[in-house]
Simulated assay, not measured.
Amino acid sequence: MEDKPLGIMRVHLKRGINLAIRDATTSDPYVVLTLRQQKLKTRVVNNDCNPVWNEHLTLSVKDMNDPIHLTVYDKDRFSGDDKMGDADIDIQPYLEAMQMGIDFQKLPNGCAIKRVRPSRANCLAEESSILWNNGKITQDMILRLKNVECGEVEIMLEWIDGPGCKGLAREGSKKTPWMPTKRLD
């Protein structure tokens, strides 16, 4: 069986909002993203419960059903780092929007392709839109952290079809994420 990824998910970790205090009066937060055996982390932002990371982390996606797990930690110098909450990033709605068979090139900039509402099944703090913007499909979202008293993380998803990737084409189509689906009848 081929072990090629479907593609690359770029996660833009923008900022944390009202994160929990884990030191005396503040925290030193950083984020860890996990997808299967892949584990990536942001830099630490010292003394800030509203940190701005503005970092892009890229993960290789092999299965559309695998969520990306996000965990926020407080960096401690002399003891183990404290967990400040976590959230699962459900990438399925985003990937399904990319496979809708729409000629995205004909859409106006900023056009919403799909909207995802908060539910018990996701960690969204508010409705999230999947947009066609500047030749790319992106999804901005604010995730409410679980297992903590407060805190949210703002991120953006973007798909990259890298060299050697299978892509997201459905059977019977020659679709790429930026082209319409054409059935071969």
Results as ranks from 00 to 15, higher is better:
residue 117 R to N: 11
residue 117 R to V: 07
residue 117 R to F: 10
residue 119 S to D: 02
residue 119 S to C: 10
residue 123 C to T: 06
residue 123 C to L: 01
residue 124 L to P: 00
residue 126 E to G: 11
residue 127 E to I: 04
residue 127 E to T: 13
residue 128 S to M: 03
residue 129 S to I: 07
residue 129 S to T: 07
residue 130 I to C: 11
residue 130 I to H: 04
residue 131 L to P: 05
residue 132 W to M: 10
residue 133 N to G: 04
residue 133 N to I: 13
residue 133 N to M: 11
residue 134 N to T: 14
residue 134 N to I: 15
residue 135 G to Q: 01
residue 135 G to T: 10
residue 136 K to Q: 13
residue 137 I to P: 02
residue 137 I to L: 13
residue 137 I to A: 04
residue 139 Q to W: 12
residue 139 Q to C: 08
residue 140 D to V: 04
residue 141 M to P: 01
residue 141 M to V: 00
residue 142 I to W: 03
residue 144 R to G: 09
residue 144 R to Y: 01
residue 145 L to F: 01
residue 145 L to T: 05
residue 146 K to Y: 03
residue 147 N to T: 06
residue 147 N to S: 01
residue 149 E to T: 12
residue 151 G to I: 06
residue 151 G to S: 15
residue 152 E to C: 13
residue 152 E to D: 10
residue 153 V to M: 00
residue 153 V to A: 04
residue 153 V to W: 08
residue 155 I to M: 06
residue 156 M to F: 02
residue 156 M to C: 11
residue 156 M to T: 13
residue 159 W to I: 08
residue 160 I to S: 09
residue 160 I to T: 15
residue 162 G to D: 15
residue 163 P to I: 12
residue 166 K to Y: 08
residue 169 A to F: 05
residue 171 E to A: 15
residue 175 K to N: 13
residue 178 W to H: 01
residue 178 W to T: 07
residue 179 M to S: 15
residue 180 P to E: 09
residue 181 T to R: 03
residue 182 K to L: 02
